[in-house]
């Protein structure tokens, strides 16, 4: 299957097979005007099967590390690979996950943003800033 290479944008590589759509939705790629390609079950030497997302523009990837810090982000400028990195765990994620604690203030005050902070980088634990409930992935 042929998918055109991108000129200026990003390639999100080494996504666990089957997780591509989750990341597509997480990044709200359906709302992008530029070309976006989601490749499922591509062959991988490292992972056997993987998903890949190609986005022909630059988007905010700040919270991507929360979803999977092991994925690879390739930055393409003028058709050349200029940067390759794994996303860092963000210190804070806002309105990415919702607090599921029924006793949390966010359950009654609907306008409050759902904010989670990284409390244990080693175990990738995020807790709600209001009630300290652990984020469920």
């Amino acid at each position: 299957m042929k998918i055109d290479s991108i000129k200026n944008g990003i390639v999100i590589d080494h996504i666990k097979a089957g997780e591509g759509m989750k990341i597509y939705n997480f990044l709200n790629l359906d709302k992008q005007d530029c070309t976006v390609a989601l490749i499922k079950n591509a062959t991988s030497k490292q992972m056997e099967r993987k998903d890949i997302i190609k986005v022909d523009c630059f988007i905010d990837l700040t919270a991507l590390g929360y979803i999977d810090p092991n994925i690879t982000i390739n930055v393409i400028r003028d058709g050349e690979l200029v940067e390759k990195y794994h996303p860092e765990l963000p210190e804070k994620i806002v309105n990415v996950v919702r607090c599921k604690n029924p006793r949390c203030i966010t359950t009654t005050e609907q306008e409050l943003p759902h904010v989670f902070k990284l409390t244990d980088a080693g175990r990738q634990v995020y807790r709600c800033i209001y009630c300290e409930t652990k984020a469920e992935r």
Partner: peptide, 10 residues
């Protein structure tokens, strides 16, 4: 004092 957790932080 509030029955909801996190209300004083808000």
């Amino acid at each position: 004092r509030h029955p909801k957790e996190g209300a004083p932080l808000v």
